[in-house]
């Protein structure tokens, strides 16, 4: 055994791999193997199949209508090599969304597998449960929630435009890390349409039990959405100043 570093107690403050100890300049044996195991598990997470039906059912149980959709990437391998296909709906899904669209709505929501289907399996429903009271309090109208397979963030631009939404929110599995294979990202885009650039979105990342909590993420998201509607934009010109809001104002006010 190599000796542990005397600051090992600080490891409780962070999931980062601190105070690993060393033998000479190098990592101790147990750390090398622990890392190899984590990498093996993250590799497996990338290839876990997406259970869109279960996600759709969980969302339906919140009382929200759901639409299933596929991107134009037919398989995981194609998805990884062809991001352009992951950003577009399949022809069939495009038709289905166009048929399902009603009048204009405030917000379309897309739950997409991205690079971690596990993240969407675990985090999407509880996040939407936390967001629902904010949507009710603000009186925002919603399109049916789209559950999308082999999808990237920009797929939301096409989906949001088809569903005639003033803004689109994409919940997507972030690339799995060694310590967080199940992290959800939130991308908000005002006036969605194909061709929007990443500079025109706001992002809230690392939504998961051990990261940003569902309540905190829902508060931030609703703050950004309110500002997006007020100013008519999202992206680099919309700065997130939500942390300046007092703690007591971070709960949704429901009509009494």
């Amino acid at each position: 055994m190599t000796p542990r570093d005397p600051w090992l107690a600080f490891a409780r403050h962070t999931p980062a791999r601190i105070a690993l100890g060393r033998t000479g300049a190098s990592l101790p044996t147990d750390e090398v193997l622990r890392f190899a195991l984590a990498h093996a598990q993250a590799r497996d997470a990338v290839h876990t199949p997406f259970d869109g039906e279960a996600v759709a059912q969980g969302i339906a149980e919140l009382g929200l209508p759901v639409l299933a959709a596929d991107s134009a990437a037919a398989s995981r391998d194609i998805y990884l090599r062809r991001p352009d296909l992951g950003r577009r709906l399949s022809d069939e899904s495009r038709l289905r969304l166009a048929e399902a669209a009603g009048g204009e709505v405030d917000l379309a929501i897309v739950a997409a597998d991205g690079l971690s289907s596990t993240a969407v399996h675990v985090q999407a429903v509880p996040f939407l449960a936390a967001l629902k009271p904010w949507v009710a309090a603000e009186g925002w109208s919603l399109a049916p929630v789209v559950v999308a397979r082999q999808a990237r963030v920009a797929l939301g631009d096409e989906a949001g435009a088809l569903l005639k939404a003033r803004a689109v929110l994409v919940l997507i599995g972030e690339r799995p890390g060694l310590s967080s294979p199940d992290s959800l990202g939130l991308y908000l885009t005002f006036a969605p349409r194909p061709g929007r650039s990443d500079a025109e979105r706001n992002c809230i990342s690392n939504v998961r039990g051990d990261g940003l909590t569902f309540e905190a993420a829902a508060f931030k998201l609703s703050w950004l959405l309110r500002e997006a509607f007020r100013r008519g934009l999202t992206g680099v010109d919309l700065k997130d100043d939500s942390d300046a809001v007092a703690q007591e104002a971070r709960r949704p006010l429901t009509a009494g």
Partner: peptide, 25 residues
């Protein structure tokens, strides 16, 4: 230089403090 080469926010692997000591050696 990232603790244990594992970036717990950006979710990727880079080089660690130990890796830097290795190339210095």
């Amino acid at each position: 230089g990232i603790p244990g080469a594992d970036d717990v926010m950006l979710n990727y692997q880079s080089t660690s403090f130990h890796d830097a000591l290795y190339v210095r050696e």
